[in-house]
Design a protein around this nucleic acid. Sequence first.
DNA 1: CAGTGGTCTAGACCACAGC
DNA 2: CTGTGGTCTAGACCACTGG
Lengths: 244, 244
Amino acid sequence: MNFSYENNEQAKLPLYLQIKRQIQQNLIQAGWQFDTPIPSEHALAAEFNASIGTIRKAVDGLVEEGILVRQQGRGTFIRQPDFTSSMARFFRHRTKAGEQQIPVGVVKSVQEVAGVDEINRLLGEPENAPLVYLERLRLNGEKVILSEKIWLPKSKFAPLLNLPLEGFDNLLYPFYVQQCGQLVVSAKERLTFLADYQDEELTQGEAQAVIKISRLAKGLDGSIIEYRESYGIAQDFYYETIIS
Amino acid sequence: MNFSYENNEQAKLPLYLQIKRQIQQNLIQAGWQFDTPIPSEHALAAEFNASIGTIRKAVDGLVEEGILVRQQGRGTFIRQPDFTSSMARFFRHRTKAGEQQIPVGVVKSVQEVAGVDEINRLLGEPENAPLVYLERLRLNGEKVILSEKIWLPKSKFAPLLNLPLEGFDNLLYPFYVQQCGQLVVSAKERLTFLADYQDEELTQGEAQAVIKISRLAKGLDGSIIEYRESYGIAQDFYYETIIS
DNA sequence: CAGTGGTCTAGACCACAGC
DNA sequence: CTGTGGTCTAGACCACTGG
């Protein structure tokens, strides 16, 4: 288990990249307001003493990364991430009527655990830093379609430990923002196949073929803020991708 | 060549999009040379009577779509698609030494077949248009790691029918360009799981768990030029993706 | 060296949202 | 109406490639 984002540090960056980075820093410091725009391009041009075109190129970069969205006539905003259905997008699950159904998320347990070498390394945490560990299910009605194990750095997510299970929202990522000020902007996932996975909830104790999804979620400052393992029945597996 | 906003039936497109489309058309007409650059930005600006910035934006679009690549100091070129390992990128196969190995492609059969409703629809061909059908294996040494079935429109790929099996290259897509003038620029893939797939070569007649990859490959003019089904052993499945 | 793409400027006008 | 992002111009200079 050794996948990670690479860090590229440069010496002499073009102005538009410097500005891009600075804007990103400002977003972190200011705290994110999804409903109020960032300063206008004109204002940014004045602030950074650069031309509009250069500002646009900097903002373009953040838009491409999915961190900002432009709205003509209104302004440029921090993107409200929509992971609504993304968590279960690898699987097909439909009602009897044939409609796509959005699974419900239920947290089954929350606890503090000691650091685990392998996971702390993925999270970029010190070797023995404590973690927050969640178990969670995704349900379609009565049916369990996804079983999840989630590890978070306690340094950033300690507030979750003081909440009752009923206090957790259906969607976790907006909840992270609300409770801990942690914004997930992108994620890297690895899919593998397990012939014999066993789990009380998902497979009801019998060994079954599953697809395992390992996810590293990245925060606004570029650090990894969540490691998650999700398991779903292989028979329901369904994924589309575009390559070029 | 006149690009003014005129009496078009179409909605009015920004100039840079009109130019982008026109460049793409020119690439098709000119036939692709991977080793000679397209006209310089200066030349294009003169040809289209637009400013450099607008030309850059048009070319940027084609670069983002993976059709062109820029090389500072040299020029802008049609991208030599690198599907070298992409066909088998969903699977992990390594030598005993642990190196990633690039599988070898071997075509087992080529024949003309009657149109199949479902497939002709996917290819955008008339209902009874004949097809070219290939069977192909991907091998690591002796081991079969991928079994493929490929359907192509005869209208574009008839030349393949006159070739001996030994004449087929290891890589198919560069071969398509060379033999039929068909360039694959992108593809859409759908992954699903089959619990009991049986195949003489891949599973040696025994039913096994496999991952099925259905691919639609798109040509330079945007039409679908290939439909392909690939099957690989589920145990070897391994895929990474970034979402945002 | 000449020619290419890469960055950057300092404006202009257009299209759209919201008051 | 004002202010926003979206398009476009006509240059400039820099960084890199190749002969």
